[in-house]
Every structure is written in C-alpha cells, then in structure tokens.
Design a protein around this nucleic acid. Sequence first.
DNA 1: GGGCCCGCAGGG
DNA 2: CCCTGCGGGCCC
Length: 302
Amino acid sequence: MTYAEERERNIARNRQLFVDLDIDRLRPKYEPKENTRKKVAAKKRRSPSPESDGCDEPPKKILRIPDDGNALGGARRSSRLAGRTVDYKREQDRGVPEPITVNRSRKLKVGEVKSKRTYDPHMYGHIPDVEVGTWWATRQDCSNASIHAPWVSGIAPGPNGAYSIALSGGYDDDIDDGYAFTFTGSGGRDLRGTKTAPKNLRTAPQSSDQSFEDRNNAALKRSVETQKPVRVIRGFKGKGKSKYAPSEGYRYDGLYVVKKAWIEKGLNKEGFLVCKFAFVRLAEQPAIPVNDGGDDSDVADE
DNA sequence: GGGCCCGCAGGG
DNA sequence: CCCTGCGGGCCC
C-alpha cells in the first residue's frame, strides 16, 4: 500500500470514528473568515517590546487557581468546598491571593511577577481575561499568556488530564474539522541522534513506537476519563492540511474534551505505533475562523 | 529551501 | 544535575 493510500485509509477510519461517536451533529453552521487584519497588526516580531496585539493586559496579581476542581470556565468546585458553588474569579476580585510556585525552586510573593504570566497555566479550563480567538505570533507568547506553557511540546500534562495542547499539523493522517479533530501523541522520536552523529534536537521524525507510558500521552488518556476541558491552540504549520489553521502564528480556539484514546499504526514506512486521540469542542464558544488558503494550493502532497 | 543549535518550561 | 519536547532564529 502506498503512503497516499494508507493516509486515505487512516483518514477514512477517523471519519468513521467521528460518526460512531455521534459528534458529527455538533458541526457548527457558521464559519467566519479569518480576519487577516490581525496578523498585519502583529507583524512586528523580533522587537523586544512585550506587546502582542492588545490581548494580554499587563500582569498585576499572580494568583493560583486550584486545579482540583471541575474547571469549566469560571465556576469551580473542590473537594474541600463540595456542595458549595465558588466563583474564584470573584474571589480574586476580593483580593485573597495565594502565592504561586512557578519554578518550584522558590515561592513568589504575592504581586511578584515571574516572566510575564498573570495566571498559573497549571489549571483546567479558560485562563481569565484570555478570549477565545486570541492570537499570538509565537509559542513563547502563548506560554506567557498561560494558555499553553511549553515552548516546544505539544502537550501540557496534568494530574487529571492535559491542561492544553497545540495543533501544528505534524501528522498527515490527522483530520481537523474545527469543532472536532484527531490528534497524535508525543514520543517515539530520536532527539539525540546517534553516537557517531549526535544531535540536540527539539523535534525529529518518528523512530520508535509511542505508548501510553509516555507522560503526555497518559495525561490525554486520563482526559478521556475525567472529561476535563483541554485548552487548544492551532498553529500556522497546520495550514494546507486544515482550513482551520491560522495563516500565521498561534490562535486560542477554546476548550475541547477528549472523547477517545487509542493506539494505531502510524503513517510512517516503518509502521511505528502512535497514540491517537479524538477531540470534540465544547458548545457555546465563538466560531472558529476559517482560512481560505488564498495562496496555497498544495494540498495534494505525497 | 534545509541544517544546525540554542533557550525555555516542566519534570525526575 | 539530568532528560524531553509537532520552536525559532540564524546561516548557508
């Protein structure tokens, strides 16, 4: 079977999975066009000025929001407060800030600012004050906004599921329908090269099996059990494969839940296994803008 | 375009 | 200290 044939087969299987999971009915009716004005406004990178495009306020207080609650947006529960409804955002307004440990090496005092973060990224659900659709030029900016902490890694793992993931179109047989997509796990890459040709890479081609032993993959599998919301950013590298990928930079597309986790043979000639996950977007969020392509026509790559 | 090498976040 | 990880800048 050729690569293209296998790719088509995998994609067809994933589409059938969406039918079986009965998520196709969640497809939104309206799909606004991507606002290209944004990327012009934020074209200036390289400049050391910390502004992105007006989406992040200057940090004031650093607060920790407990990650043990059922975090869906603002209202959360914790076991200590079982039976009560607690709005932590309002609690913050009343100003009862707790210290946050960013580096684990030292505690920050209230009001002290480490990097540019206002909120701890180790929490489930939305980050306060960051709207769905917010755009950043780089992964570093996403990290500073607490939406997706790792600069490189596509998965931010937590004890009760992944906090966030980054969609970058790195796997050819993943499908992206906007409101739902499949996602491939991490691991199985040789980042250090060989003894004779050592390397110090951050990404590399698949060279071994992935598994749920991997911390990142395990977290996403756990997300299936807990159904905790996962923040999703889409990156420009997915364009050409997905019309929902931004033409530039990275965009926060809101909260999804992981419906299913499984292992299958990956789309590589060696047949290494990969971990796959099916994501579905939570309802009542702003529509995802589509990228008309405009310039690229190379969808038929082999 | 590709190759290289780096910083950083996070965890062990 | 060590390691990993669908970045990114630079040079060619």
